[in-house]
Design a protein around this nucleic acid. Structure first.
Lengths: 232, 232
DNA sequence: CGCAACATTGAGACCAGTCAAGCAAAGTGG
DNA sequence: CCACTTTGCTTGACTGGTCTCAATGTTGCG
């Protein structure tokens, strides 16, 4: 816990969107006292599967992945977390997922028991948590839907569009040029295909004029409607 | 709403496990007054996607599926619901999923607004709902994991084991002989493979002596450990 | 009985996985 | 500063599991 630090809500970039935004200033101050703020470098583990599930967190900057890892080391990404999202598995009996920073990131960590106790006496927080978990559930089911209905081109197209949306600060319109903060291996783990297929598919999308690649992670969308059609 | 009926908790088979079990008798009585009980025949729609999301429900008997259906009619099952489970998408802005009875079923339906209002003043209910949604999220992510790591034999094996567990009334041990309450088409939609592959795989599992089939839906498990190994 | 829905089986095509080689960029150490 | 290693990405050839298309078998219901 070398990077641990005090929580300062005033300068928080997601103060208006995170789950704690529904609390009064007093309650938020109380939460800030019992929790702490921490920075993570790309690739660093935030919550390890099998850990006593004693912490819950809000991502304030960066991006993170939640993944399963089985005995033989095969990893599978089951969710991405963007700023204001929750890290870890609140209200689950134990942590079965790894949470890892995809880029340099920051998060507010809270002792789980105290966070849950606060939700018992603040209905607004409980309701906000329910909508948050419901949204995650929706995301998860959309991922199932996408994986089973689309093949490689459609999956890669959907990923590109998703990051085009996430890259834009304004929710109204999407970015045309941005970086994918994932390695080929991570894209493969998320989309349920292999590294080679991701690489071949990106090459094919560029050959067909739907995108242009700048460096290994830069993407410029040239034909958004064609990508949308592929993604379904 | 021809089959609508009053709710009688005394004879409810899931009174000890459903989300309402955390309520006092008074609160449960209040809930019973504002809701109603209803029977559904196999194949009947319980909640339709696109409906104003005004109802939430607990399944008391039978089995149900939650599925996405897109423009061209392609259906994808994203979750199964067993007795004591919740139907519909609580706290989601709108219903994007169809909920359909897989067998003849019964459910308690509640107006969503009043149910949510009750959770605001009864922390125990709010907490119980959070654990319920968290469990659904876990199931959903396990499905993602299974689909992307196993191929056809493993997926079918996992399905058989899941229903072996669900068929047993006692949580301690599983049934060896039971019926799959799904058509081949529904299994295909759930597992993300085709009807033909489901059929071929079941034939192969029987040829290899892992299961025996009785009729088109009856299953007898002959080699549970081999199935477990396949399912991962 | 005869229709309709569901299930099984086969043949061929194809997408993606596997194995393997080569390339580029970034870091490491002499 | 340059060889060397490491890591990540790309590309090719081959293989194989699953899909598609099609025919046949089976079950259940009016």
């Amino acid at each position: 816990m070398s990077n641990a630090d005090r929580i300062v809500c005033d300068s928080c970039p997601v103060a208006d969107r995170a789950v704690c935004s529904v609390l009064s200033n007093d309650d938020r101050g109380e939460l800030a006292r019992i929790g702490h703020h921490r920075r993570y470098a790309r690739g660093e583990t935030i919550v390890a599967a099998g850990d006593a599930n004693t912490v819950c967190a809000t991502l304030t900057r960066g991006a993170a992945k939640m993944s399963t890892i089985d005995r033989d080391g095969t990893e599978r990404i089951v969710a991405l977390v963007h700023p204001a999202g929750m890290l870890g598995q609140l209200f689950a009996p134990d942590a079965t997922l790894h949470v890892t920073a995809l880029t340099d990131s920051e998060a507010c960590l809270f002792p789980r028991a105290q966070f849950e106790a606060l939700s018992d006496v603040r209905p607004a927080l409980a309701r906000r948590l329910l909508t948050e978990v419901s949204r995650e559930l929706d995301d998860s089911r959309n991922l199932i839907d996408m994986i089973s209905k689309r093949q490689a081109r459609g999956r890669v197209a959907a990923l590109i569009l998703a990051f085009s949306r996430a890259a834009s600060p304004a929710p109204c319109h999407d970015e045309a040029a941005f970086d994918l903060p994932l390695t080929r291996g991570e894209m493969a783990q998320l989309l349920g295909i292999t590294i080679e297929t991701v690489s071949r598919t990106l090459t094919a999308l560029q050959r067909d004029g739907l995108i242009r690649r700048t460096g290994s992670h830069g993407i410029v969308i040239l034909d958004r409607s064609a990508l949308t059609a592929l993604a379904g």
